[in-house]
Design a protein around this nucleic acid. Sequence first.
RNA 1: GCGCUCUUAGCUCAGUUGGUUAGAGCGUCCGCCUCACACGCGGAAGGUCGCAAGUUCGAAUCUUGCAGAGCGCACCA
Length: 715
Amino acid sequence: MPEKFLKPYDATATESRIYATWEKSGLFNPDECVKQGVTKADAPTYSIVLPPPNVTGRLHMGHALMLAVEDIFIRYKRMRGFRTLWVPGTDHAAIATQSVIEKQIKKEEGKSRHDLGRDEMLKRIGTFAAESHDTIVNQLKTMGASLDWSREAFTLDPARSHAVRTVFKQMYDAGLIYRGLRIVNWDPKGQTTISDDEIIYEERVAKLYTFRYSKDFPIPVATTRPETKVGDVGVAVHPDDARYAAFVGKEYDAVFCDVPIHIKVVADKEVDPTFGTGAVGLTPAHSKIDWDIADRHELSHEVIVINEYAKMTVAGRLKGKKTTEARDLVVEWLTSEGLLEKEEETKQNVATAERTGGIVEPLPKLQWFIEVNKEVPGRGKTLKELMLEPVRSGAIKIVPEHFEKTYFHWIENLRDWCISRQIWYGHRIPVWYKGEEIVVGEAPTDDGWVQDEDTLDTWFSSGLWTFSTLGWPEQTDDLNNYHPTDLLETGYDILFFWIARMVLMTEFTLGTIPFKTVYLHGLVRDAQGRKMSKSLGNNLDPLDVAAKFGADAARMALIVGNTPGTDMRISEEKIKGYSRFANKLWNIARFILENAQQADLQAPLSASDTELLATLEALTKEMTTDIEEFRVYMAAEKIYHYAWHELADKILEESKPLLAGTDAAARASRARVLLTLLDRVLRLLHPFMPFITEEIYQSMPSKETEFLMVATWPT
RNA sequence: GCGCUCUUAGCUCAGUUGGUUAGAGCGUCCGCCUCACACGCGGAAGGUCGCAAGUUCGAAUCUUGCAGAGCGCACCA
């Protein structure tokens, strides 16, 4: 028995050493596995692409959970003989990364991005992203992730950029990408548009004002935003509303708080006759709903009264005022003119930007969109339908299943996807202009062209991830072998952001699904059930945890008892518990190796020892089914329980008298079976606790393969 | 408003298609340095499975209603 077993198990020292030997072996790469003869060349493939962590800093426990789950499936499949590929990568995370740097520069140098200029700003972000990348790679390795580093990708590297431009052009040529003036969610703080999904609604108490545009205007109107009323072009009432029927179609002129306005009364079913006065003042340029209603009644969209800095652009007393100040001025004016009829409190959901917290201002802007309700040429279906179909048909399975309903619900409500962003970090829109001419895709070589200033929504490039990482648009072997991928594992919080967009992009580009199964994990919370955050200081850093208790222990703590789709709580106590389990396993190995190092592997087995093997075989079958059916939490708990409370507590205890006894046959039988049991336990536990199992395996008297990570999963 | 999830031991959670005395970890109490491990061992206490009704030979598990907690989407001007 090696001397190392005489000391308690030292996870930290062992883990980094073991990872280095794995990496050196090249066995994370399926091609290398085939070359070295541990995997058959014609074996079926199994692939996962790593959800690329944002290069905004470092990984958190949610990432650690993701890595644990994915590594379990990858290691399990590798041991089952699949050509197993897990592709690593990172995400440039456009807005998130840029805003980190912007804040930092503002704080340290008091400068804005416009002070630095586009090139300098991009240089700064690039430097930061590279540092983040290195930290993240180090963390991924620390957690034991058996990723094929030879295939690492970045959402903003040249190969991925080429894929982005290619898809953009194809969608543009298919008529699915268009540029149009639409109401977008403008974040005045971040100075960019954001998508519907980047909005957080905050409930606030607001005042609902009931007023008239002028003394002779026949209909009272209710609003929470009086300042926008200088931009009104109409009033909408419900077609069946008898109170106002007589006024429909009539037009009125007024001077509203120094601003001349022209109002037409229209009838529209969208209006709720029971809310407020049953009449809506229409401000097409500053409200999405009003824009749509105005569209239906051919009212002007062009009256813009608020700019990108959320300031008033009209002449008169409101000129240049912030919207909040303008609101007070308008109310003051209404009161003095005797036009204000009522002022009541109401609850209102205020749209705020997820990244900056700024209050979202709906503004009409020229933006790029992907049209989701238009038929895709050659497919006979809209993008929306293409997103729904594979999940409906079962071609894509979501675990846990009930998220399928959430997915459907979201897509059914989906509107055109605004893909342009007014930030600098990211894929620049691949469109060039020269006068009336336009070029899409690759940059023209002759002079005089100006590229679109905007960049693409970060999820555009993330949406290509399953195939852009495998070499598309080239028809590579990897693409043929590993796509569609088998599993996509991520947090349920990005079901819409990412999963849905990958389905959209892959269906459009390749006419197939990006993955067969979606496994959604829950949020990792602290011991009190709070979200982990910097401000609360309750973050657990995976690196610290690994240094203290070992990555194996952290992985077990994140897996056991954690069902997919359910939030979990993690504490140092729980992780500590599994570090003790690691030590237990260490001592099980010590005992068995001490007593059975010289065991005769041909010795005949006694009836009771045969039964011990049968029991473990039954457990093996259960575990295999559990993993196949995505119950890794059960498989982990079962092997934990077996190792500690069967093997150690019962089998080892009853072995002591047997091994010290005089019955040579019983002794030989027991020594042999103990060694076999240990070997099996190491294999079964390896996907969950890869480091310690590999370390013990290295001391086994006989080994099937050089490394446990490519040994055969027992049956 | 539409939809989803949860409610099981003091705490955190399992319990796969309904089937014998409902499990684990942590915690608590008692006793042990027993020659693999004190990062350990042995033992104990602790649950009317949110409430009510129904289906069934049988329900923590299925159905309905109620109560409480959380989440997603939409959003009213």
